[in-house]
């Protein structure tokens, strides 16, 4: 329901999600270290979750579907971060750095 208040309009939330997506894509391309790229992916996931909850609130207020999806996104993000950080630590042990551009071989 588009109201008079700023926090009652859907487009504001969608614009915030869009800004997070923009920052995430920029960060993945721009940052050097793998950890910073992972942090940028977290930004994108947060923007997606915000969009889901906003659509649930304004477009289909009947049930909690969007909120449940956002909870699933959080769980999957936790699992993905654990695996990705384990791999990053392994890469650091093998290459002594974690810069994405400097990793050229899978196995020596």
């Amino acid at each position: 329901m588009t109201g008079t208040f700023l926090y009652d309009t859907l487009n504001v939330y969608l614009l915030v999600g869009l800004f997070l997506l923009c920052c995430g894509v920029f960060g993945i391309l721009y940052r050097r270290t793998l950890i910073a790229m992972l942090i940028s992916i977290e930004l994108i996931m947060n923007g997606a979750g915000l969009n889901l909850v906003a659509f649930n609130r304004f477009v289909s207020p009947g049930g909690p579907d969007g909120m449940v999806f956002t909870l699933f996104v959080m769980g999957i993000a936790a699992a993905e971060t654990a695996i990705a950080l384990a791999i990053i630590i392994l890469i650091f042990r093998r290459f002594k750095h974690i810069e994405g551009a400097g990793i050229e071989e899978m196995k020596e």
Binding site: L10, L18, F26, L29, F58
Partner: peptide, 24 residues
């Protein structure tokens, strides 16, 4: 990076402003 992110965002921005979401 700036060109890629700003291009994709401008695409989504146009889509977002054009669409009416049928708010309940």
């Amino acid at each position: 990076s700036l060109i890629v992110s700003l291009f994709s965002v401008s695409l989504f921005f146009k889509l977002l402003m054009k669409t009416s979401w049928g708010e309940g």
